[in-house]
């Protein structure tokens, strides 16, 4: 394949214009790289220097800001992890049978059903958050683990269904038909044939849904409260109430490490090419 492309590619002529173009491209890529990297670098530098005036000298490197992270932040962090994990698990448990029934069952009204489940992904998160607040207040679900969990489950469900539907549509039906010809029932086929075949895809979906749940902000902003505040919202309300604090920057640094660790995990498991395209939902 690559050999064909190389022979069919025209000869490169090294003209002044071509060199100039290459130079412009190199400068452009360099500027874009700096631009894309600067938030991460700045947050990490500031977190290690323990103050907001970032300098480039390595002498004032210290861990004071990390040590000063208050327990409330760690609580919020673990709250976020707990809700994100539970929501991912619940959503996939609901989404896999639903996707299977929709794709294999060829039910009437399938399009309507799958569009219905996609609503939380299409409606702006801020608006859905406001709508949930009005319903949750009389039910006393606002400012509670259950309320945050429900909101996240609805969001994860629509991502999860989209993923699993695509997985099942990409899976030839022949394997399942073969199993059924040999006498296996629908459920046995699902358990022994379908599930193992889609398991790797489901694992990827779970990773992405989990990460999406970790960073969800606008959906949860209105229904969160002091008893149930994800870390992003805790950091946000602190900046509004008290301004930028070094230990808050350190906590932001911790979130950067989480993202890095997650990326490394996915890249090692899958290879970096899976990160291209629109695998990740938009509001990250």
């Amino acid at each position: 394949m690559s050999a064909i492309t190389e022979t069919s590619a025209p000869m490169r002529r090294w003209t002044f214009g071509g060199l100039f173009g290459t130079g412009v491209l190199v400068v452009y890529v360099g500027i874009m790289l700096i631009w894309l990297l600067f938030p991460i670098v700045l947050v990490l530098l500031a977190s290690f220097q323990g103050r907001l005036e970032v300098s480039l000298s390595l002498s004032d490197f210290n861990l004071d800001a990390y040590k000063a992270i208050p327990p409330a932040y760690w609580e919020a962090f673990w709250f976020t992890v707990r809700t994100a994990l539970t929501a991912t698990a619940v959503a996939l448990l609901i989404a896999i049978p639903a996707a299977w029934a929709m794709v294999r069952g060829k039910l009437r009204g399938r399009r309507i059903m799958s569009n219905l489940v996609l609503i939380p992904d299409v409606v702006p998160q801020l608006i859905l958050g406001i709508a949930l607040l009005t319903v949750f207040i009389p039910l006393h679900l606002n400012n509670s683990f259950a309320g945050v969990l429900l909101a996240l489950v609805a969001l994860s469900l629509s991502t999860g269904l989209r993923f699993t539907e695509a997985l099942l549509e990409g899976l030839p039906e022949e394997y399942e038909q073969a199993a059924q010809t040999l006498g296996a029932g629908r459920l046995t086929t699902f358990r022994l044939v379908t599930l193992p075949l889609i398991a790797p895809g489901v694992a990827i979906a779970a990773l992405f849904i989990f990460m999406q749940n970790l960073v969800t902000f606008e959906l949860l902003f209105f229904i969160a409260g002091p008893n149930a505040s994800p870390i992003a919202i805790r950091l946000f309300s602190d900046i509004v109430d008290r301004g930028v604090l070094p230990y808050a920057v350190a906590m932001a640094g911790v979130l950067v490490y989480v993202a890095m660790a997650f990326y490394t995990l996915v890249a090692v498991v899958l290879g970096p090419k899976y990160m291209a395209g629109s695998v990740m939902s938009r509001k990250g």
């Binding site: 938030p39 947050v43 992003a232 932001a252 993202a259 990740m280 990250g284």
Partner: peptide, 8 residues
């Protein structure tokens, strides 16, 4: 950056 909250 896509895996970071807007807050960061």
């Amino acid at each position: 950056p896509r895996m970071l909250p807007f807050v960061v």
